[in-house]
Structures are given as structure tokens and as C-alpha cells.
Amino acid sequence: MDGSKFDNRDNPAADIYLQLVKKHHCPKSTEGTPRTLTELKIYVRNRVSATIFATYPRLN
């Protein structure tokens, strides 16, 4: 990801989330777009890692 293209460099959570969903086909959050890096971290921990392990079960 190119951080120089983030709309809000002080809090890039929404930009990172949108790139994960649009470019990397991660599932959308049921909680809406993460607004903080902490919310993004929770999203990644809960949704993205679950998707990776469901897609690649040998990693478990």
C-alpha cells in the first residue's frame, strides 16, 4: 500500500480498510468502515484472518 496516497495520513484506517476490501477482496466489516487504527486492528484480527484460514486451511 502506498501511504502517500492516503487521504488522512494521521489516521489512515479508512483508507487501509478500503484498499483491503477493494484491492485484496477482503470481506466488508459488519460494523462499518473502521475509523481508528484500533478498530482496523480488530477488523483485521476478526474478519481478515478468519477469511485467510478458511481459504487456506493448511495454515491452521
Rank of each mutant, 00 (worst) to 15 (best):
M1D: 07
M1A: 06
M1F: 08
M1K: 13
D2M: 00
D2V: 00
D2H: 07
G3T: 06
G3F: 06
G3Q: 10
S4V: 02
S4L: 10
S4Q: 09
S4R: 08
K5Y: 09
F6V: 00
F6E: 05
D7A: 11
D7F: 10
D7G: 10
N8W: 03
N8R: 06
N8I: 05
R9E: 12
R9A: 12
R9K: 15
R9W: 14
R9Q: 13
D10M: 11
D10S: 04
D10G: 12
N11F: 01
N11L: 03
P12S: 04
P12G: 10
P12W: 06
P12Y: 11
P12H: 11
P12E: 12
A13P: 02
A14Q: 09
D15K: 00
D15T: 00
D15L: 00
I16W: 00
I16H: 00
I16P: 00
Y17D: 03
Y17W: 03
Y17G: 01
L18A: 08
L18Q: 11
L18S: 13
L18D: 13
Q19C: 08
L20T: 02
L20M: 12
L20G: 01
V21H: 00
V21C: 00
K22D: 14
K22I: 08
K23I: 06
H24T: 07
H24W: 11
H24G: 04
H24K: 09
H24E: 07
H24S: 07
P27S: 09
P27M: 03
P27I: 07
P27A: 06
P27G: 03
K28W: 09
S29R: 01
T30C: 07
T30H: 12
T30P: 03
E31C: 12
E31N: 14
E31I: 14
E31S: 15
P34S: 02
P34W: 04
T36K: 13
T36G: 06
L37H: 04
L37I: 05
T38S: 09
T38R: 14
E39G: 00
E39R: 02
E39I: 00
E39F: 00
L40M: 05
L40N: 02
K41A: 15
I42A: 06
I42D: 12
Y43Q: 04
V44L: 10
V44C: 07
R45N: 12
R45Q: 15
R45P: 01
R47A: 11
V48H: 02
V48G: 02
V48T: 01
S49G: 04
T51G: 14
I52H: 06
F53Q: 08
F53G: 01
A54M: 04
A54K: 15
T55R: 08
T55A: 08
T55D: 05
T55M: 09
Y56M: 10
Y56V: 10
Y56E: 14
Y56I: 15
P57T: 05
R58P: 15
R58N: 14
L59H: 10
N60S: 09
N60D: 15
